[in-house]
Design a protein around this nucleic acid. Sequence first.
DNA 1: CGGCCTTTGAAGATC
DNA 2: GATCTTCAAAGGCCG
Length: 579
Amino acid sequence: MPQLNGGGGDDLGANDEMIPFKDEGEQEEKISENVSAERDLDDVKSSLVNESENNSSSSDSEQAERRPQTRADSESYEKARDYFSEALRRQQDGGLFKSPRYPGYPFLMIPDLTNSYLSNGSLSPSARTYLQMKWPILDCSASAGIKDSRSPTLGHLSNKVPVVQHAHHVHPLTPLITYSNEHFSPGTPPSHLSPEILDPKTGIPRTPHPSELSPYYPLSPGAVGSIAHPLGWLMPQQGQPMYSIPPGGFRHPYPALAMNASMSSLVSSRFSPHMVTPPPHSLHQTGIPHPAIVSPAIKQEPSGDNISPSMHAKSPVPPKKEEDKKPHIKKPLNAFMLYMKEMRAKVVAECTLKESAAINQILGRRWHSLSREEQAKYYELARKERQLHSQLYPGWSARDNYGKRKKRKRDNKPDSKPEDFSIRSKKQCLQYLPSEKRCDSPASSHGSMLDSPATPSAALASPAAPAATHSEQAQPLSLTTKPEGRMHHHFSLAGKPSGSSSSSSSTSSSSSSSQPTISLPIGTSGSQPTTPILTRPIPFTSLHPSMLSPPSPFHQAALHSHHALFQSQPLSLVTKPTE
DNA sequence: CGGCCTTTGAAGATC
DNA sequence: GATCTTCAAAGGCCG
């Protein structure tokens, strides 16, 4: 169960003692990973080659049969509903989301209008970076061509993207669209679009403190709609709903400024006119629609037989009927998922890779390379998400979704035959190997602090200079076998403290039992065996004090130069044989 | 066209 | 209590 914030100080999450952190074992790994961004992709690739585990995929396909459905339609519907749901959700959310979630629509971040300044007057970290982050895809494929392996930073893309900043500058707490998808369908402003928001705890309406407002105000759809982007970057890309502009989507009647941050973001991101009255089934028993609610038609099983026992247990009603009527409430996104959602676009933009599997591997590494603080932000956000989720769906249980998804099978099952595995993995490797073997890795692998500066000022200060972390991109990727692949997962599972929040603390010691605290030291324990052995000294950045504290522009700068030095150094990984 | 791949984390299930 | 399993997102790839 989501831990309810024990009455912490300010609105929820003030004291997040619950924030789980990975343990030091990872730190070690982190270090090695930080060495070079190139490794991101590199490792990914290699690991794919050397997967130490078999993916006997689909051994069971019993549930294979899923009712064919018009994905697009259902999805669209689902998303639209999600937005509305989120709107309501946020309304109640009160202080839960101090940080605005960006809607996922970069176009909302028009620099001029965003002038997003934090309450303290500083420029919002994400104000400008947001754009870049969400629009990296502007020209992924093109970027490949454009990308200079030596300096493939976003800066190069800037010729296409007007505002380019390191995505990492985006505040981690920036609105992450959870539960669903980024459908932009703003519409008639709901009555709840008042500055007042409900305190999730007390349920008492309150006016959000400026600090709770979005540091960077996403433009209201209406406002945005009136702005014609010279480059046409507003155009949806890849047909992703995220960038799609539903009919009337931009005709939001309400001036952006009229809304508070959270409202505007939520409205812009999810609210849809036609969602004002969501279908009954999308409403939770509480009557509160939520983005997590997915149209039953979308992921439901074809018939009752697919319903997990738990489902049966829970709902004596005929499975099928139940399914049809029962909305699919998605699980709240965890910290990593939130992170992924936020960073995916960036990674995609920087790499030629498009396969999610590969991207996710990179993201996973980056995740590990994030500083505690950085991760903490996501953990906190995730925690709040869970909180809210539990509030909205008191009766919901993760098990409700069991069996609603096709089985993933595999997972570290050693039983699978090695041979098969090897064959398959290699095949996959090819699959994930982009024609272009390099990925302009974004930075982050060097250390989160680099990636997500507390403020964009540093980056902004030197527009000419690519984001610090991007420099590493200059390093060509080299494929090195890295047995780690699955192994890592394996380890993680083994050492997973399970119930406790600090899961993946793979192996490390841990502390896990108790609540991990942010004040984790850097070089603690450590020995994370699963990762490649570095043949090169670990960059001090990995151990930089800033790891323990929010990165300052100075740090950024310093680190930046440091990275520059490192960039020139070739990296070599020695794979450690898997046992 | 549905499922797999891949990642971490949370939570339920199982032992 | 420890371990295992499932699901959450995402999009290209494969059978």
